[in-house]
């Protein structure tokens, strides 16, 4: 066991190996590891962001659905109101029309009745004049007695 040139050679090899590790091994491997951890951190951040975005989107979707439901029920309400109004209106028109028709029919009836009464009166007056002329055995001038006849007719 002695100290010899091996010592110097070993130091040189050692220094060269340190230099080699420092230059070609350490920074590259550590760089890859750091880059990976950065990537993972980014991935996790992105995942969290995505989750947040998803939650927000879900909230927004819920709000939209709620609004749509509100509007739909409003529209249904309006439609019902409108339908009721229409029915009411139609009912109103129908009843006035009916009344109008009834009134017109009554007027017609009255007109017909008065017309019938008029003609009946005239016939009765004629019959009465004929009967009277027969009774008197002579012709009564209907013109001369028109006054009388119309008075009679109104009395019947």
């Amino acid at each position: 066991m002695n100290i010899n040139l091996t010592l110097i050679v070993q130091m040189l090899v050692f220094i060269i190996l340190i230099w080699f590790t420092m230059k070609f091994v350490w920074p590259i491997i550590l760089g890859a590891m750091e880059e990976r951890s950065k990537k993972i951190a980014q991935g996790l951040a992105a995942a969290e962001q995505g989750e947040q975005a998803l939650a927000q989107a879900r909230e927004r979707a819920e709000a939209i659905v709620r609004e749509a439901r509100d509007r739909a029920s409003q529209i249904i309400d309006n439609a019902q109101h409108r339908a009721n109004d229409l029915v009411e209106q139609a009912k109103g028109t129908a009843s006035t029309e009916g009344q109008r028709l009834v009134a017109a029919a009554q007027q017609q009836i009255e007109l017909e009745a008065s017309r019938a009464r008029e003609s009946l009166r005239r016939e009765v007056a004629q019959i009465a004049v004929q009967a009277a002329s027969k009774l008197l055995q002579r012709e009564i001038d209907p013109k001369a007695h028109a006054d009388l006849i119309s008075k009679l007719a109104t009395q019947i």
């Binding site: 002695n2 100290i3 010899n4 040139l5 091996t6 110097i8 050679v9 070993q10 090899v13 060269i16 190996l17 080699f20 590790t21 070609f24 091994v25 590259i28 491997i29 890859a32």
Partner: peptide, 29 residues
């Protein structure tokens, strides 16, 4: 102490193992 002497086996295995370490880690890097 005799610096004209060198232990060839020590140097050989030191260099061999240095190459093994350096080479494999360099490959990995």
């Amino acid at each position: 102490v005799d610096f004209s002497v060198i232990n060839l086996d020590s140097v050989f295995f030191a260099v061999l193992l240095a190459a093994a370490f350096g080479g494999s880690f360099y490959l990995a890097a």
